[in-house]
C-alpha cells in the first residue's frame, strides 16, 4: 500500500508535468462545455422538450476525459513504459509491473472524475444546468464507460509492438470516437446515416447510457448499451491479460 500511494503520487506529478492529459482530459472538455453553454444556454434540447440542450449534453461532455484517458493516455503510457524497460525493472523488485499499471488506471480515473466535477460546476454555475437523473445510476454508467474505455486502452498499449504503433492505434480509436460518438459534436446534430455508423462505436453506446441516466429519461433500450459495454470490457480484459507484452 505504501508503494502504491508513493507511486500514485509520483506518477500523477509526472503526468501533470507532461501536460498532455491536463489539456486533453481537463481543459478540452471544460472549453467545450463553455462553448456549448454559451451557444445553447438554457434553450430546450428540441421543440417541446422538458430538458435543455445542455442537460442533454452533460453525459457526453463527461465522457470526453474518459475517452482521452482510456484511448490516448493509457495506451501511450503503457507502451512507453514497456519501451523504456520500466515494466521490466519492476520484475526484479518485490512488487510486480502490475502495480505501476494499476497506478496508471487510477490516474486516468482521477482525471475523469476531476473533469466530471469541473464540467458539472461550469454548467451549473454559469449555464443553469440541472442534474435530473439518478446519481447512482449515472455513476454506475460512468464507471461502466470507464471500464470499457480503459480496457480498450490497456489492450492497445499491452499488445502494440512499439510506441509508434501504439500512437497510431490510439489516434485511430481516439479521434473518430471523440468526434462522432457524440462526445464533442452532439449525437443529435449528426445526420442519421452518420448516427448509424456512430452506433457501432462503444463510446456512442456509453454516451447514450450516460445521457439517459443523467436525464432520468430512458427513451431508448438501455440494455443494448449496457450489454455492449460489459461485453467489450470483458473481451478486452481477457485479451490484454492473455496477450500483454511485458517486454
Amino acid at each position: 500500500m505504501k508503494a502504491f500511494i508513493k507511486m500514485l503520487k509520483t506518477e500523477l506529478v509526472l503526468s501533470l508535468r507532461g501536460m498532455d492529459m491536463l489539456i486533453f482530459a481537463i481543459c478540452m472538455p471544460a472549453v467545450i462545455s463553455i462553448i456549448l453553454g454559451a451557444i445553447y444556454g438554457t434553450s430546450p434540447a428540441f421543440e417541446g422538450s422538458e430538458y435543455t440542450f445542455i442537460e442533454q449534453s452533460f453525459g457526453a461532455l463527461s465522457a470526453i476525459a474518459v475517452c482521452a484517458g482510456g484511448l490516448m493516455g493509457l495506451p501511450l503510457v503503457v507502451a512507453d513504459y514497456r519501451n523504456k524497460k520500466i515494466l521490466k525493472r519492476f520484475k526484479v523488485t518485490p512488487t510486480s509491473p502490475k502495480l505501476i499499471l494499476t497506478v496508471q488506471i487510477f490516474i486516468y480515473i482521477f482525471y475523469s472524475i476531476i473533469s466530471l466535477i469541473l464540467n458539472y460546476f461550469i454548467l451549473t454555475v454559469f449555464f443553469g444546468y440541472n442534474f435530473r437523473g439518478s446519481i447512482i445510476e449515472f455513476l454506475g454508467a460512468y464507471f461502466l464507460v470507464m471500464l470499457s474505455m480503459f480496457s480498450i486502452g490497456m489492450l492497445v498499449g499491452g499488445v502494440a509492438p512499439n510506441t509508434k504503433i501504439a500512437t497510431v492505434l490510439a489516434c485511430i480509436l481516439y479521434f473518430p470516437m471523440l468526434i462522432f460518438s457524440g462526445a464533442t459534436l452532439p449525437y443529435e446534430v449528426l445526420p442519421s446515416h452518420f448516427q448509424r455508423i456512430a452506433d457501432f462505436m462503444p463510446l456512442t453506446q456509453g454516451i447514450k447510457l450516460l445521457k439517459s441516466s443523467s436525464l432520468g429519461v430512458y427513451n431508448e433500450n438501455i440494455f443494448i448499451p449496457i450489454i455492449a459495454m460489459i461485453f467489450l470490457g470483458i473481451i478486452c480484459i481477457i485479451f490484454s491479460i492473455k496477450f500483454f507484452k511485458w517486454e
Binding site: 509520483t10 506518477e11 509526472l14 508535468r17 507532461g18 512507453d80 513504459y81 523504456k84 524497460k85 520500466i86 521490466k88 525493472r89 526484479v92
Partner: peptide, 13 residues
C-alpha cells in the same frame, strides 16, 4: 539489487 545495462526510468522524473 539489480542494475540493468539499459537504464529504465520515466521521462521527466
Amino acid at each position: 539489487g539489480v542494475q540493468f545495462q539499459e537504464s529504465s526510468y520515466q521521462e521527466k522524473i
